[in-house]
Design a protein around this nucleic acid. Structure first.
Lengths: 202, 202, 202, 202
DNA sequence: CATGAATGAGTGTTCATTCAT
DNA sequence: TATGAATGAACACTCATTCAT
């Protein structure tokens, strides 16, 4: 009988190590050796669980996104319209420590999209998924009469994603300039600007 | 002093080549050799004009920023308040081809800030410069009564920079999702949301 | 003793898989993993049946030779002199598909004799065995008066082995240049050149 | 002004080192590092003169062949027919030390043809070149009436190449079995078997 | 008996950097 | 000033081998 290992757990161990290395040292220094060392493994073992380095990086990115997605679902459970959008946005924005790490990973990958066309495809799919999620709830908000009458919903979704991506970049690059409370204020100010008077939370 | 002009010219030649290589192949593939080849120079000569590779990259980033800064000055000459802000923003946003190249360079560098602490310092200084520029004009706008009474100007500046950075990221990563007209609409919608009624351009 | 039969069977299973991998992908790509996969076994189990990789390869070569030897015995049963030599040669030459596979294995190993001194010893023993086999029958042929009077039998044996090895190389490297019929013609022309007139097959 | 080097000489230096490593340690151990060390260079420099490892090996093989070809031309200058063929064959056969090295290289490459399809193409072209060379002179011999009337010249060329390749293999694998004199005797016996009586050398 | 997880040395390759010319 | 030859460290990746299960 072979040594029993939980394949998925093992992969996640490596991917979490990958996240830490990227966030600490940058994607360039996220070598197979440094990832393996961070995970407490030898460099060779990584090829048991991943095709190649590109597979590690893609998987790390996708797992990060899937964790965020799960959090969004949990956070917006039972909510609808603008409240759901707010909950979703708060999970995507780099507020807490854990989300800062996600932002660092995200921004690091952006810088390699020009090198790595495969990455570009992944990010685009993820963009569409996020767009869909926001768009659906914005339609709900419109149906519920939460929005000002002349609001262009596609433009709002676009702006919301710009906010998430801009905040992610700025939080990583200039941490003190976008503290959590400031991020929330920024979001709320924007949501208020599209909401029908008295529509939002009071 | 023609020497100095030549020297500066030579540096700029190399830096423009660096931009092209980064935008085309990504920062990872922007090697000294590829930059030299793009500039039509031998790889060795680059050490006469730059300390090391990191110096090339930093200089390329700074030159790009200084070009953008010059454009902002030109574009906002004679304007004040929200109109000046709009002009400044339009130079920072990735609208035309030239600005797309700048955005590609910018986003590529973001992904290497974690690798390269020197870059982080540069970007932060640049952030502060941009903040100052927007903040000054926003104060003008307030003084001119262009803003809604309860507007938090620091928050607006923060949001404006988030818009620039978010649009830069999204334009590089998902070009068709943020076409130039959509960018301008997004900006104008935001400016309108902070402007006193009838304050903006009609 | 069924155990031993199983063990031998298992080894032969692995060795046949080794042949197939070598013939298909080359000796360089005949890794323990690829051999195990081809045999439908796990890579670890191979160490139960073989010392190490070198043992697998040596054994594969020896088994191939022993199969050829058996075929020679069967083919030359009841024959003597030049007819026996012809029968033996036809088994050693790369005529049919099965013998082409043997030639591919053989030639692949030649290219690794310089890497692997153990192989050299094996091949030399095999050479002597083959020499002996041909030499004995050539002595018979001489005793039977089948040879021209001035024939140097050692030289003939040497030439016969050169033919086998040269044809093996050429059949592997340039298949269309040494088709089976051409090989047989070549052999027959040579045998005729050493045979007393009217001694051979009419 | 750059350091002046003779590119061709530098390449040949590396290729000669490659030959020595292959002949001494085998193709498998002919690593870029070992070749560089044998040539007295650092491993990195090799990429200045060669595309990649495959380019080194191909070039080494082709240079070896081209040297042999040159020797054949020199050795057969002024000769015609069977005498030219004999001179050509004596250059291709592994008689002297230098030719033994060539044979070791040759046989080593044979063992990697199944791994490396590019190699196969090279060897086939070389085969055709050799065939042509022998075939032309054999036609001369026929025209000069040196051959027995019923000789099949294509079959003879095939046999001559089989002799060269078989001797190369055997000389590398079983050196004492095919000493130089024995090789020459073998060749002469074969040539005599295809020559009209009294046609050859007296 | 058998598995496959794990190791670590070795490979080809790339590259910033140095330096003789 | 300028070249490009040369170095050596770092990288992703492969693999025979070991060993806990």
């Amino acid at each position: 009988m072979p040594k029993i290992v939980d394949w998925e757990e093992r992969r996640n161990l490596v991917l979490a190590a990958t996240w830490r290395v990227i966030a600490r040292d940058g994607l360039t220094r996220a070598t197979i050796r440094s990832i393996a060392a961070e995970a407490g493994l030898s460099s060779g073992i990584i090829q048991h669980y991943f095709e190649d380095k590109s597979d590690i990086l893609s998987s790390a990115l996708l797992l990060s996104h899937s964790r965020i997605g799960e959090r969004m679902v949990r956070a917006s459970a039972g909510l609808k319209g603008l409240e759901a959008i707010r909950a979703i946005m708060l999970e995507a924005m780099p507020l807490e420590e854990a989300q800062l790490l996600e932002a660092q990973i995200e921004v690091s990958f952006w810088g390699h999209v020009l090198d790595n066309p495969a990455l570009r495809g992944i990010l685009r799919t993820e963009y569409d998924t996020f767009w869909e999620r926001l768009s659906d709830e914005l339609d709900n908000a419109a149906a519920m009469g939460e929005l000002k009458p002349d609001v262009d919903t596609a433009q709002v979704v676009r702006h919301l994603i710009v906010i998430v991506d801009g905040l992610s970049a700025d939080r990583v690059l200039y941490p003190v300039k976008v503290e959590p409370e400031q991020q929330v204020e920024l979001l709320d100010a924007y949501l208020e600007s599209i909401a029908r008077d008295r529509a939002l939370r009071e």
